[in-house]
């Protein structure tokens, strides 16, 4: 029986474990897809809206030969009040070999993992982590940079509500990157620097962008602001990535965004569609990375 495992977060994974996902993703991209998981059943349990993560996991699972089923919070028994644990037990009883879960509550995948025997893959939990996104971000960076060590990687925007940031910070820190988090105090508390070694907090995008190798822009998560009022014009003036600000970064710097983007808010279209933008490549790479995650968590690679 192959050894299966869950992927709940990157914080507690070692650099070696992360490297093995990335290595496997490269194999997935270079070869013709193999039906490594033929006949397996993958449940995609989505409590939050998603385009790229959901489709990407679904394509990845199908390319590996699995049967997939998508369960949305609306149009399922979740709408009738079935608890997360009971929903998970139902999916397990239906023969799911793995549950991929996206949920608005931080730690929801941990609840499933504690109560079920099948591997759980975190496809984004609340404001906590988004491991597959950070893995595909690292994968994308490594297609353009020799190594993560010593890179100056700047993340700008709504840090407080971003699971992408938390996963990226944990991953990049383990490989010795210098991380700069940039945003206003209400979206970036000072103690964010305590998340991992090598993290700095900056309030000025010009300072944060200067000499950066990678700039990751983030959307302001209006759905998670919980009453916090934000002055949009001031935010744009202080934290939008413009072509001028991008010039402060290294000449070979790349621009990333986990999506969805709000053009004209955190990023200007000129930058989003410019030569240094890797935003579409990130999405493209997501499928290979998620194939690697599924194969690895189901114990076949």
């Amino acid at each position: 029986m192959p050894r299966t495992r869950s992927l709940l977060e990157l914080e507690h994974l070692s650099a070696d474990e992360i490297s093995s996902f990335l290595k496997l993703a490269r194999r997935m991209q270079s070869g013709k897809p193999q039906p490594l998981l033929r006949g397996k059943r993958i449940a995609l349990l989505f409590y939050e809206p998603s385009t790229r993560t959901r489709v990407s996991f679904e394509f990845a699972a199908k390319l590996l030969g699995t049967h997939t089923s998508i369960i949305n919070a609306v149009s399922s028994s979740i709408e009738k009040g079935e608890s997360l644990v009971d929903t998970g037990k139902t999916l397990q009883a239906l023969g799911s070999d793995c549950i991929v879960v996206r949920h608005p509550s931080s730690g929801a995948p941990h609840v499933l993992a504690r109560n079920l025997n099948v591997p759980i893959i975190n496809a984004g939990d609340g404001m906590h982590e988004h491991p597959s996104q950070a893995l595909l971000d690292a994968y994308t960076i490594l297609r353009h940079k020799r190594s993560l060590k010593g890179l100056r990687i700047t993340m700008v925007g709504d840090i407080q509500h971003s699971r992408v940031v938390r996963s990226n910070v944990h991953l990049l820190s383990k490989f010795g990157a210098q991380i700069v988090l940039c945003g206003p105090p209400e979206l970036l508390p000072d103690y964010a620097a305590s998340l991992a070694p090598g993290v700095k907090v900056s309030r000025h995008i010009d300072e944060a962008a200067r000499k950066a190798d990678v700039i990751m822009m983030l959307r302001v998560q209006k759905e998670r602001l919980a009453g916090l009022k934000l002055d949009v014009n001031s935010y744009i003036a202080h934290y939008q990535l413009t072509p001028e600000r991008l010039k402060l970064a290294k000449s070979d710097a790349i621009v990333m965004h986990p999506g969805p983007m709000v053009r004209g808010m955190e990023i200007q279209s000129e930058v989003a569609d410019g030569a240094q933008s890797m935003i579409e490549e990130q999405v493209h790479n997501g499928v290979f990375v998620r194939m690697a995650i599924l194969a690895s968590c189901l114990g076949v690679a």
Binding site: S106, G107, G126, R166, Y191, S194, L195, G227
Partner: peptide, 18 residues
């Protein structure tokens, strides 16, 4: 304290809790 689940601070930030 709307929506909050634990003490504000570094641990809440790390866990993504309000």
């Amino acid at each position: 304290t709307e929506g909050s689940a634990m003490n504000a601070g570094p641990t809440a930030f790390r866990l993504g809790l309000r």
